[in-house]
Simulated assay, not measured.
Amino acid sequence: MIPDRLKKLRKQAGLTQKQIAEKIQVGQNSYSNWEKGNRTPIQPTIDKLAEILNTSSEYLTGITDDPTCIKISETDLDTAIDNSVAYDGTPITDHDREIIKNYLNEYFSNKK
C-alpha cells in the first residue's frame, strides 16, 4: 500500500525521489526502497512524508482510502487554541481546551 501511494503522490506533487529524500533527511536510496516496497519507513517518517505530500499517514498506510483526509497535528491544534480566547475574552481553560481538541479531532477524522 505505502509504495504505490508514495509514488503516486510524489508524482502528483511534481517531486523527485531525491527532493523528498532531502526534505526528510534520508538518502535517496532509502526513499527508493520505500517506493519499491523493499523497506517500510518508521511511523515518524511516515508522518513527515504525509505532511510533505499533503495527505495523512492514515492514507499512506491504508487505514483510509481518502487522500484528502488530513489529520491535524497536536502542535497545530495547540497553537490554534493558544491563539484563541473564550467568548468573554478570557483565556481558554484547560477543561475547555480538552473539549475543543476532542471536538476538532472528531470533526476532522469524520470529514470525508
Rank of each mutant, 00 (worst) to 15 (best):
S32D: 11
R97I: 03
T75D: 12
Y59N: 07
L77M: 15
G89Y: 09
Y59Q: 10
A80Y: 02
E74W: 02
E58A: 14
Y31H: 06
R10M: 07
D66V: 11
L9N: 13
K23E: 14
A80V: 00
F108D: 01
T93H: 03
S32I: 04
Y107T: 14
Q17L: 00
V26I: 15
R10K: 08
L53M: 10
S73F: 04
A80Q: 04
K11C: 03
L104F: 14
N29R: 14
Y87L: 15
Q19I: 00
K101S: 12
H95S: 11
I46K: 09
P41K: 09
N105S: 09
D65E: 14
D65L: 08
L77H: 07
L53P: 04
A50G: 05
D47G: 01
A86F: 05
L15E: 05
K36S: 13
A50R: 01
R39W: 01
M1R: 11
D82E: 15
G27Y: 13
Q25I: 05
W34D: 01
L6I: 10
Q12C: 01
S84L: 10
T61R: 12
K36A: 14
E22G: 01
A86R: 15
E58M: 12
T79A: 08
Q19F: 01
E22T: 05
N105I: 11
N29P: 07
E35I: 09
E106D: 13
M1P: 11
A86D: 15
E74I: 06
S84P: 03
L49M: 00
R5N: 02
E22M: 02
A80D: 00
A21C: 12
